[in-house]
Design a binder for these strands. Structure first.
Lengths: 345, 345
DNA sequence: AGCCGTTTGGAAAGCGCTTGCCTGGACTCC
DNA sequence: GGAGTCCAGGCAAGCGCTTTCCAAACGGCT
């Protein structure tokens, strides 16, 4: 039992293909109401479902929105994806998802696949790195745009692509100021981010602010910008705590998932937060509210970012340049127990 | 600057369309090596990217794999999605994602959209409900399969659709046994699951085992099978703890996200876990390892489930019936601090 | 009744690719 | 040397839909 085609519907209703098409697939020109009814009825009885592929070919518009994330099981990305999904649905787009396992080669392949599928727009979420892989991505997106595609980034700007930027620097600065205001002076940043732009931006802004205020910042190197990266850094952090002997030390983990991993690692080593060391993260991922001790962080509107990226893409598709893609994306410092705030009721 | 077509490549290489197609798009018949080289070179210089839409139309195979989840930002679903993504990539499929916000109407729309896009297969993840919405989904999937589509479910079976089943009953029974072995007799289940099949299955198996062993099970009603559902149930649970006055009480939350929400709610009420009440969850979502107190749960191989669903779908596509889609999906009880196990080092 | 401006429905030319079938030339085999 | 085999390459017919033209029908006027 094969799927009925529009042709079948047309025949069943005794009209031409053109008429059937106009009735069923949102044309500007609507046939007379008698025919409309007849066609609708036929479509119904035959169980007709439009073939979006054929439609795409004829219209050269697929209704597909490519979404590239680093790791869909990371709450940071999945929150953004959730926002994107809602916006996409609202505008009648389907999400073509690619999760790249934080691998740049895979990311490039993913973009290629999305281009092959002629996604109307592509949203790439995820910290970019500097270096050749980056150039390749830039090149791919540029080619895509030159040939009529629309691209939006979430995270770091790259080439000329429109970008929804989280308030990294601002947030980090504010966080630093708030922590300094608590009387803290000695800080540790989980870092060594030569290549990844987002963590670098955060750690640099943080460090500058601290140093300008006369504080100190040590760096504990981290392999990966993820939960495991934070977890693995616990040893180094614990060592610094040891050395600090008495002086209040605060670790800034550059991302909540890292902070969570870090705290898990510290816990295993018997280092208590906030008694022995303070910890701060960044993003305020939704799952944070259920962690103990509650993590001080910088709130970033993740779902909103996903949503905006999609809106920007859709606007570009419609030929409008959406103003202020990153207007009003404000960071908000949330002080919690992990930096010594009283546990909330 | 428009995209080059295969035709352009063919002309540039001085061969026919057919030859170019055979060279570039994986045909069984490969032209002579001279031509192959020429075509490859032309494609390269022109920056040709195949149009998957047109290809799909001609081949009636899209290379698209529909994935329907309830909420992509829920770790349960995003873990499954991550597994699915990897498997899809391995087999050259793109994921067409739909996150339905736990809304059955949206779910139905999503399936319709995936059908319209002629996804080669559709994987629906997520607890099914009983009732009319369910019938509609069944009908939609049946129609899809009748007309050549392939569907796989993750969770509860429905109609004749192949299903990857998490070991709900087995896991719940084992959990109950293990908890009983700890000497516990009074239990609470977060429930009232007339409609959702998975939670019902879990709570029923758990309850039966407990009752058979002479234990008691109270039920605290819950609105939604999610973190917030658990959070909102904290009041009811706390009240029961109060009544129990002294006797050890253990709450089984049917899903980790609920357990986490519950614990957050209990914490706000000053009810301590495991001192005042014990808590157990289900799934062992990856983020669990970072929670305090560590949650006792039943480990379910989430990524593996996503992976299997995709493999099953791909196998069906290739005309093979994959044996044992749910073979070896074993539940494993993991006793942790939330039920009084010694905190691990 | 005769004209002109509107509608309305339909025919047909694509959209970019795959693939069955056909042709002609190169080879093989007596 | 002629007939029979193979193959490589190309032609052209789709895949299912949209949309531009056209022609016919219709309505309103004078």
């Amino acid at each position: 039992m094969s799927r009925p085609r529009l042709q079948d519907v047309a025949e069943h209703a005794g009209v031409s293909l053109a008429t059937a098409s106009r009735v069923l697939n949102g044309s500007a020109r609507q046939p007379g109401s008698v025919l409309v009814e007849r066609v609708r009825a036929s479509a119904e009885t035959l169980g007709y479902v439009v073939n979006a592929q054929a439609q795409a070919l004829a219209r050269s518009r697929t209704g597909l929105l490519g979404l590239v994330v680093q790791d869909i099981s990371d709450p940071y990305f999945s929150s953004i994806a959730a926002g994107a999904q809602v916006a996409a649905r609202e505008h009648g787009f389907q999400l073509l998802l690619a999760s790249t396992d934080r691998d740049q080669a895979v990311q490039l392949e993913a973009v290629a696949a999305l281009v092959a599928h002629r996604a109307d727009a592509i949203v790439v979420v995820g910290t970019r790195r500097d270096g050749p892989g980056d150039d390749a991505l830039d090149a791919a997106l540029t080619r895509y745009r030159d040939s009529g595609g629309h691209a939006v980034l979430v995270g770091q700007p790259l080439g000329e692509v429109r970008t929804v930027r989280p308030p990294n620097a601002e947030g980090s600065r504010e966080l630093a100021r708030d922590l300094l205001a608590l009387g803290l002076r000695r800080f540790v940043v989980l870092g060594r981010w030569e290549t990844w732009a987002t963590p670098r931006e955060r750690s640099e802004a943080f460090t500058q602010t601290v140093v300008a205020a006369g504080g100190s910042v040590d760096v504990v190197p981290v392999e990966s910008f993820s939960r495991d990266g934070g977890y693995d850094a616990a040893g180094g952090a614990a060592a610094l705590v040891e050395q600090a002997a008495g002086e209040r030390l605060c670790v800034f983990a550059v991302a909540d998932v890292m902070a969570i991993g870090l705290m898990a690692g510290l816990r295993e080593r018997g280092v208590r937060v906030p008694d022995d060391v303070l910890v701060a993260g960044f993003d305020d991922i939704p799952t944070l509210r259920d962690h103990v001790p509650a993590l001080t962080t910088v709130r970033v509107p993740l779902e909103e970012m996903g949503r905006r990226a999609v809106l920007a893409a859709v606007a570009e598709l419609d030929g409008e340049e959406l103003e202020g893609v990153d207007d009003g994306l404000e960071a908000e410092v949330v002080l919690r127990e992990s930096t010594g705030a009283a546990p909330s009721a």
